[in-house]
Nucleic acid binder design. Structure first.
Lengths: 152, 152
DNA sequence: TGTTAATAGTTAATGGGTTGAACAATTAAA
DNA sequence: TTTAATTGTTCAACCCATTAACTATTAACA
């Protein structure tokens, strides 16, 4: 029984790495060459919330603000993102998608959606639903574990 | 019903990114500061197969050989990896762990094992087993999808 | 056998992501 | 009003990835 658990743990470590690598490279191919994965996730986030700040992105993606600045700069140079200073609190800068950014996002998302759909459809809906439930639970455990560490 | 599937797809895309980020940063903290995730995965791979080549690593990790050279160089500078030329075919270089490399690996693996164990133990063994089965199936789908793309 | 092709690995240039520390501008708190 | 804290940026230093050109070596084959 103990050996069984050890096997599961090893299997999980191997799988999580493999799935991540394979999935990421497939999505990279789908997106096309002009957008990195990180840039796409930021595009996705801003599209969902419409408007946000650098600090919010740093919090959401769990990186330092200077990392966000670098990514946003590159996307701004490509004309995908707009920066607007808050008139009341002139420290904050709101980030929104330009028309070009939004258009690119919709285009990418469509292709990714079809790709992921082709994967998901190979499963019994019940199985994938159970899978996602466990996945979500795991995500919560990771978040809590990270919060615990922060408090030390 | 169609909406249901769309929800699952969105949920999967969000979750896979979130779990990956959280998990990776937690493991990074566990490993300690002197080893990146990529370096750890290479340490892990070499430890398992005892001896391998750059080409094998490039194949396994799905990157170009020059990327491997760069990583191995850094690990070699830290005294973790040994390079040995094949006497018969003098083009190939065998990579093995030094004592220091092996010691570091065992140390890291122990801490990561405990961390992942603490996660896994929060699940019903049946649930985690079912989860890993689906995960493995997904991994196979990704691998096949990648192979199909290669043939084009 | 001797030329050509394939293979293993490296180097260099370029681009992208990350951190940490220092900094300016602005706002909040005392 | 002086002092904190906050928002975001810049810079130097790493790490990882790709492409292209290159060396060295081995395999193929005519």
């Amino acid at each position: 029984m103990l050996e069984n658990i050890q096997e599961l743990i090893d299997q999980y470590i191997d799988l999580s790495f493999s799935v991540h690598r394979k999935g990421e490279s497939l999505i990279r191919d789908q997106i096309g060459s002009d957008l990195t994965n990180d840039q796409h996730y930021i595009l996705r986030y801003i599209s969902q919330v419409k408007s946000c700040t650098s600090s919010e992105l740093a919090e959401e993606f769990d990186v330092k603000k200077s990392a966000i600045t670098a990514i946003i700069n590159r996307m701004w140079e490509k004309g995908l993102i707009q920066r607007t200073r808050d008139e009341k609190d002139r420290r904050v800068v709101y980030l929104t998608l330009t028309d070009k950014g939004n258009q690119l996002y919709v285009n990418c998302e469509e292709r990714i959606y079809k790709l992921v759909e082709s994967f998901i459809k190979q499963f019994d809906p019940k199985e994938i639903k159970q899978f996602l439930e466990t996945y979500e639970k795991l995500n919560q455990i990771l978040i809590e574990s990270k919060d615990d560490k922060m408090e030390e």
